[in-house]
C-alpha cells in the first residue's frame, strides 16, 4: 500500500512515523483532539476512502453513552504502587465513571470528553502512556511470569515483553499485530493465538509461534517457527518478520491470511540466522553432567 506524506503533520506533533496517514475511527475524536489532528482531518478527509488509508491512533474512543473510553498502557500490565495510587487519584480528579481492566492488559478510563487533556498529562506524569489501536503493533501482553508472581515461570517475561513493547509498539503494519509472551508452555496469555507468540522454555530460551489469531470467529493457532533462541533472537526475528509481513501482505491483510496466501516458507528464519541466537542452556547442563561436546 503506498504511503502518503502529509507535510507538517505526520511525524511531527502526531508522534507517528513520517510517511503514514493517520485516521481516527470517530469524528468525535478529531473534534476533541489537538490542533494537529484537526489539521489532519482538514487535509486528508477527501482522500481517506480512495486510498484505503491506515486506521491508527491513540486508544481513545467516544462511547455510545457519550463518555470517552481511554486505554492506558503500562509495561505488560505491571503497575508500581505509586502508579496504582496515582491512577486512583487521577480517576477521581478527572471524573472517571469507572475503570476496566482489558484482556490486553490495558486499563480503560471512562471520562467526560472535556477531561482528556488532563488525563493525558496525568498518565504521562505517572510514567504510563495512552494506548494505541489500529493497523499497528499493539501493546505487548505478558503473563505473570517472574519469580515473584508465578511458581512455574521459567523466565522473567517482563524484561523481554517490556523491550518488545518499547521497541515495536505503534509500528505500522498491514493489519493489527499482536504480540504475546508467556513464561512457560502453559501459555496463560494465549501465545499460540497471537500474531507473534513467545513461550519461554528456559531462563533466556524461547520458542516463537507465528501467525496465530484469537478473538475472532475463526481462531487460528500459530505455527512454531523458532525454538531454543534467546531474547535477543526473539527481538531480531520480529524485525525480520515485520519486514516480510509488510512486503508480502495485501492492504489490511492479517498475518495468518498472508501466511495462508504466500506460504509459511517466506517467513521461516534460516538456520544461520537462528544459530546466531541459539540459547546455550543445554551446553550448561551437558557441562554440569560431564557430557561436553
Amino acid at each position: 500500500m503506498p504511503a502518503i506524506e502529509i507535510p507538517g503533520v505526520a511525524g511531527t506533533s502526531c508522534a507517528q512515523p513520517p510517511g503514514y496517514i493517520i485516521m481516527f475511527t470517530t469524528l468525535e475524536y478529531f473534534q476533541i483532539s489537538g490542533k494537529c489532528r484537526r489539521c489532519l482531518l482538514g487535509q486528508v478527509a477527501g482522500i481517506i476512502f480512495k486510498t484505503g488509508v491506515r486506521r491508527v491512533g491513540d486508544a481513545i474512543f467516544k462511547q455510545r453513552s457519550g463518555v470517552l473510553g481511554v486505554g492506558i498502557v503500562s509495561k505488560c500490565g505491571l503497575l508500581t504502587p505509586a502508579q496504582l495510587a496515582g491512577l486512583g487519584r487521577l480517576a477521581e480528579t478527572t471524573g472517571c465513571l469507572y475503570c476496566k481492566m482489558t484482556t490486553r492488559q490495558t486499563l480503560i478510563f471512562l471520562i467526560p470528553s472535556d477531561r482528556l487533556e488532563e488525563l493525558r498529562k496525568g498518565v504521562a506524569a505517572l510514567g504510563l502512556r495512552i494506548g494505541v489501536f489500529g493497523e499497528i503493533v499493539r501493546n505487548v501482553k505478558a503473563c505473570a511470569g517472574n519469580k515473584d508472581l508465578c511458581q512455574r515461570a521459567l523466565s522473567d517475561v517482563f524484561n523481554l515483553g517490556g523491550e518488545l513493547q518499547e521497541r515495536f509498539m505503534n509500528r505500522p503494519t498491514p493489519r493489527d499485530f499482536k504480540i504475546s509472551v508467556a513464561g512457560c508452555h502453559r501459555g496463560c496469555t494465549d501465545p499460540y493465538c497471537a500474531d507473534y507468540g513467545i513461550v519461554a522454555t528456559g531462563e533466556d530460551t524461547y520458542k516463537v509461534y507465528l501467525g496465530g489469531r484469537g478473538g475472532s470467529r475463526k481462531p487460528v493457532h500459530g505455527t512454531l517457527i523458532a525454538e531454543e533462541i534467546n531474547g535477543e533472537g526473539v527481538v531480531a526475528l520480529l524485525e525480520v518478520i515485520l519486514k516480510t509481513y509488510t512486503e508480502c501482505a495485501e492492504p489490511k491483510e492479517r498475518l495468518c491470511n498472508t501466511i495462508e496466501r504466500v506460504g509459511l516458507e517466506r517467513f521461516l528464519p534460516s538456520e544461520d540466522f537462528l544459530e546466531k541466537y541459539r540459547s546455550r542452556e543445554e551446553e550448561d547442563f551437558l557441562s554440569f553432567v560431564g557430557l561436553e561436546g
Binding site: 521459567l154 522454555t201 528456559g202 531462563e203 530460551t205 540459547s279 542452556e281 543445554e282 550448561d284 547442563f285 551437558l286 554440569f288 553432567v289
Partner: peptide, 13 residues
C-alpha cells in the same frame, strides 16, 4: 543435582 543447584525444574536436553 543440576535441578536442585539451578533451582529449575527444567533440564535442557
Amino acid at each position: 543435582d543440576y535441578s536442585i543447584q539451578k533451582r529449575s525444574f527444567r533440564i535442557p536436553g
